[in-house]
Write a protein that binds this DNA or RNA. Structure first.
Lengths: 159, 159
DNA sequence: TTCAAATTGGACCGAATTGGTTCTATTTGT
DNA sequence: ACAAATAGAACCAATTCGGTCCAATTTGAA
């Protein structure tokens, strides 16, 4: 059912939390507590987020993690890709998989590209900054079209 | 890495093939052969596509499967949902999961909705009909912005 | 200088999901 | 009556995933 791995899921939650927090620097422990993400898990995620450059770390006592960029400049797509690798919906678009055997009927290939692009774009259009803006009170900050938080679409289960 | 299950992957390939084929009715065997999808697998997929109403079946000798709708009227999203259930990126949006524990910091919830919507929309904007139109010769049919098949974006592996 | 608080990196494991097969029943044309 | 199809379900191996744990390193402070 096309779902994000928990890793990416948590990742976004964590980044969102860090973006919202007034404190610049956050220690793993605090983040875990605040987000309810299991500490070990949070740690793992934070580490890889550092590796991919979305976070910076200060080691040693009083250490912690800091965002390297303005949350508004970090897209959800980036976080997802940082944690689960490139967003590619189908195996046929994966690197090195040139020999899918069905080359002839594979105009589809290019269309798959379209699908991938579409999704990536969708994910790239939402920033962590936006995610961090509190919604219940409904203050959309730097957002233009304001229908999304109202519509809770049926989400069509099957047909 | 956010990927479609092989089920949905194959599903789209199969639907695309059926849309392209001049023959109205297709038998499992032929479909499997043409698409390179393992026969048993194809069979399984076809069955569920019938159950969800995207295909109709004729049983018995000379039987086979038929699309119930104009391919242009069937979206990729439908096929995906038919095969892997509702498109919901994160567990927190799944039905009945109201007790995510972190209700307070969960303005995020509504933002997840946005993400889900974005993706679903992306997938809903591409029809099987479009998928079926041959691309290599680059005849974009009912499409407006024509940069997607040209741009093979870096697909940013990690950072 | 020594200790404690942090991050780092990796190995590791159980469980769930996935991709795929197989078998039996049923339907239908010839 | 037989063969060609679909229907439906159970079943299995293997990968992936969510999660934990541990040893190493860095750094501030007593």
């Amino acid at each position: 059912m096309i779902r994000l791995s928990k890793l990416a899921d948590y990742g976004i939650v964590i980044m969102t939390h860090m973006a919202r927090g007034r404190a610049r620097q956050h220690a793993t422990h605090d983040i875990a507590e605040a987000t309810q993400v299991p500490a070990a898990m949070a740690s793992k995620i934070l580490k890889t987020l550092v590796r991919t450059g979305l976070l910076a770390s200060n080691r040693g006592a009083n250490g912690g993690y800091v965002m390297t960029r303005d949350p508004a400049m970090i897209t959800v797509a980036e976080v997802v890709e940082a944690l689960e690798g490139p967003i590619a919906l189908t195996s046929c678009t994966e690197e090195g998989e040139t020999d899918c055997g069905i080359e002839q009927l594979c105009p589809t290939r290019t269309n798959w590209q379209r699908i991938n692009d579409a999704i990536r774009t969708a994910l790239a259009e939402i920033s962590i900054g936006e995610m961090a803006t509190a919604i219940p009170s409904a203050f959309m900050v730097e957002d233009d079209n304001s229908d999304h938080q109202v519509s809770r679409p049926p989400m069509a289960k099957l047909a």
